[in-house]
Every structure is written in C-alpha cells, then in structure tokens.
C-alpha cells in the first residue's frame, strides 16, 4: 500500500474482522497480482491484514469477515454500518455464524470450560450469529473461505455498479461441468452438493469426498428429500445431522433441517 495521497474520487474500501479465522481476508491477499490492480482503482483505507495504517471513515465499501460472537462485536458492527455506504459480508462466519455457531445448540459455559485453560478470561455471547442478524447488509458472499475470483468480481461489480456474478445454482452443476463422477451415486457417500450453493468449483467431490456445504444452502433446496433418500440408503440419521450442522449449520435452511432430523431422531428414540 502506498502512503502518498490518493485523489479524492477513488472509492474508499475498508476491511473488517469479527469472529473468524482470517481465511477470507487471506483470499483477498492471495489474489495478490490482481490486488495491486485493485489498489490502483480503490483506496484501501483500512485492511489490517495487509497494513497497520487505518485511515478514518466514512468508507464507500465495507467488507466484513467474521460473526458476532461477543458483546463488544455487537456494538462495533453498528459503528461499522454507520461508516460504510455499502456493507458486504464475506464467508461462512459473517453470512451464517460460521463453525463457531455450533455453540448455538449447546451450553456456552460447557464449551468455554472444556476449551479454554482459564475460562474466566472469556467474555463471549451465548450465540454466534451472522452480521445480517444485527445490521442491514447489502450483499452476502458465501464460502469457507470465499473464492478470490468471486471476491474480486464482487468488488469490481460494486465499482462498475452492476450485479455481482455469483451463481445461485447447486454445487452439482459445477461438479457435472467439471466431469467429476458423482460420489453420492457411484460410491454412496452422502454429499451436500445438491442443496449447496455453487462457488467453490466442486472441489471436494473431485477429490473423492462429499461436499459439506461451505457455500451454504442453494437458492432452491429440498433438504428433506435429500436426507430422506440418504437415510433410506443406509446413512445413519446422526451422521446426516452432523453433515447438515457443519460450517454453515446455522444458515436457516440447514438449521431447520438439522433440527428436524434431531427432533425426529429423539421422537424415534422414545419408546
């Protein structure tokens, strides 16, 4: 990042981190060659992963990584929203609460006690929730992590004022375009591809394993049909619940389905 003054007309970009692993911001950094090109066209006013310099707001575009996991985060996001004309959230944490939202089904104190050496130092909310649960969000970019190509397309789209080119189809569409043999059909592996939004390029099935839903529920889904079919083919319900309750487990469509599977399970368990 250059220190010299940028012309006023350049859109100003700020990147924020909430509860997350930084993987999505790294995707932005990873796209390095193109990032330099990006830096010519926008003023990167705040991106701590890349530079410790923070220029004060307001900003034209705010990119938020991470979920709301502490009381402090809950306050901070309000200011972020006020500072940014467009607010876009990136990654599973920011768009659905992330893997840390697994605690939404458990007892926070138990988790804290079992994970941290000195639980008293931990001040966390009982839930991990997506940014859109707290402030209005202009666009959500899914993925764990997000795809660098999609991220740059999103930023370019904001600059050009067009709709971002983000597919709403299922992972299966990418899987078939890639010519991968379906792991569900040919190996009986329960795969979430049919109900998951495309974006990753169907990487996992190409490496002989199931899709586990990194891009969250596809626009048109039918989870009940899929899990019912897998269960009939012999996958235990418990395994299906775990599969659906994963990285994007707190996304509404996935959340409802894992709750349904679990409640049907407990109903069945009753004599």
């Amino acid at each position: 990042m250059h220190a010299e003054k940028r012309p006023q007309s350049k859109p100003r970009l700020a990147v924020y981190k909430f509860a997350s692993c930084d993987g999505c911001q790294l995707q932005l950094l990873d796209a390095c060659g193109r990032l330099l090109e990006l830096a010519e066209r926008v003023e990167i006013a705040q991106f701590l992963e890349a530079s410790s310099r923070v220029d004060p707001g307001p900003y034209d575009v705010g990119i938020v990584e991470g979920s709301i996991s502490t009381a402090e985060d809950r306050e901070r996001i309000q200011q972020v929203r006020r500072d940014c004309r467009f607010l876009v959230t990136i990654g599973a944490c920011a768009t659905s609460g992330g893997i840390q939202a697994l605690r939404n089904w458990g007892q926070i104190d138990e988790f804290v006690a079992s994970v941290y050496a000195s639980p008293a130092t931990i001040d966390a909310l009982a839930t991990s929730t997506p940014i859109a649960d707290h402030v209005p969000v202009d666009f959500e970019l899914r993925g764990c992590p997000v795809d660098p190509g999609q991220l740059l397309d999103l930023i370019t789209s904001l600059l050009l004022g067009r709709r971002p080119r983000v597919p709403s189809e299922s992972v299966c569409a990418e899987c078939k375009r890639r010519g991968t043999v379906c792991v569900a059909v040919a190996q009986g592996i329960p795969c979430l591809g049919p109900v998951t939004q495309a974006g990753c390029g169907a990487i996992c099935p190409a490496h002989d394993r199931e899709c586990f839903g990194c891009y969250g529920p596809a626009e048109a889904t039918n989870l009940v049909s899929l899990t019912t079919f897998y269960e009939k083919r012999g996958t235990p319900r418990e395994r299906l619940t775990k599969l659906v309750r994963g990285i994007n487990g707190y996304a509404p469509a996935f959340r409802e389905e894992s709750d349904r599977l679990e409640s049907a399970d407990s109903m069945r368990a009753r004599p």
Partner: peptide, 26 residues
C-alpha cells in the same frame, strides 16, 4: 422429491441449454 440440483439435465446427452457471460478483467 426433486432437489432442483440440475444433474439430470447436465448428464442428458441432448439437453443443450447454456448461459453466456462476458468476463472482464478489472
């Protein structure tokens, strides 16, 4: 029962639908 997953159409040897996009650099 249908998942709207597109598999049937993409494996079908006769289905011919396509989508065209203009992919620009930055």
């Amino acid at each position: 029962r249908c998942l709207s997953c597109t598999n049937c159409t993409l494996v079908c040897p006769t289905c011919f639908c396509s989508s065209v996009s203009e992919v620009a650099d930055l």
